[in-house]
């Protein structure tokens, strides 16, 4: 053991220089050449900063497309999932309550039309996306609140669908923040 003590310590110090100083500093340097300079991607709308592209934010008003449920209420400084088991009775009651609330806010929607992803909590609590079905099911409500034709809103949703990677891999999804920013713009246009 003794013969290894000093060489091991010195080697540790040198590895430290390489992995803790050189490596992260190089990545930090390269980050400066990237689209966001290594920062999070802020999103602006009408000259105001309204969010971060990848981070989901709370939308619970009827006039917006609502995002998925979040176990941490979209707290972007403390991500988390519900960690509820699929058979947990308390959890199932919670989902049932979300379905009932949704039906109250969306009287034109039938129960069997509600996509499960809208009433279940995401893994991070910060899911920035909705499935296409979860966006479309909210269109009638928003059309009613905002007095915008349903067809126009459906077209808006379709415009914002992000197709699978290279058209081949992964699910289709919609960024909720981008969709809601576009929705606000559409509202001001139709009002004029």
């Amino acid at each position: 053991m003794k013969t290894h003590l000093l060489p091991a310590l010195k080697l540790t110090a040198l590895c430290f220089m390489l992995f803790v100083v050189v490596y992260p500093l190089s990545i930090l340097g390269i980050a400066q050449l990237m689209p966001n300079q290594g920062n999070i991607a802020f999103v602006e709308s009408q000259g105001k900063m309204v969010g971060v592209a990848h981070i989901g934010q709370r939308f619970d008003q009827d006039r917006y497309f609502n995002g998925r449920s979040s176990a941490v209420d979209y707290n972007a400084a403390a991500s988390g999932g519900s960690n509820k088991g699929t058979s947990n009775p308390a959890y199932l009651a919670q989902v049932q309550a979300r379905i009932d609330t949704f039906l109250v806010h969306n009287p034109a929607v039938q129960r069997h039309e509600i996509p499960a992803e809208l009433v279940t909590a995401s893994g991070s609590g910060l899911d920035p996306d909705l499935s296409v079905a979860a966006a479309l099911v909210q269109v009638k409500r928003i059309a009613h609140v905002r007095k915008i034709p349903v067809a126009l809103l459906e077209a808006l949703v379709q415009q914002h669908v992000q197709e699978p990677l290279w058209g081949l891999f992964g699910p289709r999804h919609i960024n909720v923040l981008a969709l809601n920013i576009a929705l606000d713009k559409l509202s001001t246009k139709t009002l004029q």
């Binding site: 998925r68 999932g81 519900s82 960690n83 509820k84 699929t86 058979s87 959890y91 199932l92 989902v95 049932q96 379905i99 129960r111 069997h112 039309e113 509600i114 996509p115 499960a116 992803e117 009433v119 279940t120 909590a121 995401s122 893994g123 991070s124 899911d127 920035p128 996306d129 909705l130 499935s131 079905a133 992964g170 699910p171 999804h173």
Partner: peptide, 30 residues
Amino acid sequence: QGNPALTQMGIEQNLGSMEGKETRFGAASS
């Protein structure tokens, strides 16, 4: 396939069991 208990509640579960999962990855890759 999704969570059988949610299917029983009469909602639509085309994307599978999504509790604790992210929309951009989906059930299969999770």
